[in-house]
Design a protein around this nucleic acid. Structure first.
Lengths: 253, 253
DNA sequence: CGGGATCTTGATAAGTTTCAATGGCAGTGG
DNA sequence: CCACTGCCATTGAAACTTATCAAGATCCCG
């Protein structure tokens, strides 16, 4: 990956808030041309209790926000995809109350606090796009709450896959009707609040209904319409409708 | 309630981020002395699809963030207590993707966008406190995700009550070992992702263990230590300790 | 080729929901 | 004052979804 291609997904994502000027592109490229940090699956990007000194941007691989319970169980609170920021941009806490862990081989780059300050002062438009990104993160978190609270295993999994598909489309990482999905069934279980065994069976159910296919870490969505109807999926919570409809790219369904 | 007492809980809550100066107090009082809007249980503070034009602050009563599913079920995404802001302060979306509903007779006041701008420019310390408030909101949302995903009915309910107790203590609305709790068992069910029937039985279980008592819309916690151990409750996610740490840095009053 | 993680399957158990019925309590209007 | 209504809490029984346990199959990597 070229140096200036490093934060491709990050730049693409911010562009969904509103089209970036050429200057905006260049500012972001400059800010994100740092040398990336490489992580192996299971490695902490930042651990619970640490104090973040910069905002990490995931540039490749998948990661998760994750909370470990004392009884050994863990919940994946949210999935972090290429182009997503790992910490919240608007308010940096004293101490992380959860950890952020790489789920596949990944790389991150850092955006130091002072860079954010400069951005806020000199490029209010980009700063607003960053706030939008953080806001969408909270909206996704709310939808996960609904998912875990109200939906059955089949609906939950269908909903997750719909969300991932749309989010990956945003940053150009969907391939036709599917995407590369590095999660194990155990990871899915931790994200969906199910047991591994039940994830396996739910997956079979969805396969059996002819809605999708998961092989070799690649998910193919065979019928997005039925899948999203099953899940009661409504992309409004991702707050990208203004452009999503115009752009054509995301109109595949 | 006196006019200047209106936003008592709101001011108390911001004070947990770091002690407010006398001037800070006065600025907030001035900004929040507006005439309150009164709501009955079930009334929308702001509905799904609406565009918020100001930030609402709940000054009395309880409300909830809530998402209705097409199959008739609903999930209470978060509970809003006196002193909490209803919308996100840092980024105001085009359209609400959920609604905010009063659960008991309530009142709100509005903080218009331009007031927030003034605050950000002229009172950075207060603006930071507001960002902290929003950040704690996201942390609570994450914890609810864990609650719904990983905990049993008993643990979930215990956890919710622990959280509510601490949050109400923050704003001076806990009374000894308990608090006034206007939620019906149906509301609790929607918040905990359980059926009403099971909420009833879970409540009996907790009562039977001698951990709490719920009568006449008043919850008494008989053994907070055991209750929070049952729930695996750890208040770190409420980020209240900021006060102690910021204390040296911003010696204001 | 071996070994560890991952996926799959079956049987059983547990937790939770659903349905249906009952009782209490408060407000309302005749 | 009393019936009537509506909402809320409670109970029992049966059904269903999901978890747990245990074993085997498969895959991948060194």
């Amino acid at each position: 990956m070229q140096q200036h291609e490093m934060a491709k997904q990050f730049i693409a994502k911010l562009g969904w808030f509103s089209p970036l000027s050429r200057e905006g592109h260049e500012v972001l490229r400059g800010l994100t041309s740092a040398r990336p940090r490489r992580l192996l699956p299971g490695e902490d990007i930042i651990g619970e209790g640490e104090r973040p000194r910069a905002v990490n941007i995931l540039v490749s691989g998948w990661a998760c926000r994750c909370k470990q319970l004392t009884n050994g169980r863990r919940q994946i609170i949210s999935l972090i995809l290429p182009g997503d920021t790992c910490e919240h941009v608007v308010f940096v806490p004293d101490e992380m109350d959860h950890s952020i862990i790489a789920l596949s081989p990944s790389s991150t780059i850092e955006m130091p606090q002072n860079v954010l300050d400069i951005l806020a002062r000199e490029h209010p438009h980009l700063a607003l796009a960053l706030k939008w990104e953080a806001f969408v993160g909270t909206a996704v978190q709310r939808e996960w709450t609904v998912n875990l609270g109200q939906r059955t295993a089949v609906e939950r999994m269908a909903h997750l896959f719909c969300e991932l598909f749309v989010r990956l489309q945003m940053v150009g990482l969907a391939e036709g009707q599917g995407f590369a999905m590095p999660l194990t069934q155990g990871d899915l279980a931790d994200a969906l609040g199910l047991s591994t065994v039940h994830v396996n069976r739910t997956l079979q159910e969805l396969r059996g209904r002819g809605l999708l296919n998961l092989r070799n870490r690649h998910l193919t969505i065979l019928d997005f319409d039925v899948l999203s109807a099953t899940a009661n999926f409504n992309r409004a919570y991702l707050h990208l409708s203004s452009r999503a409809q115009v752009n054509g790219k995301a109109e595949a369904s």
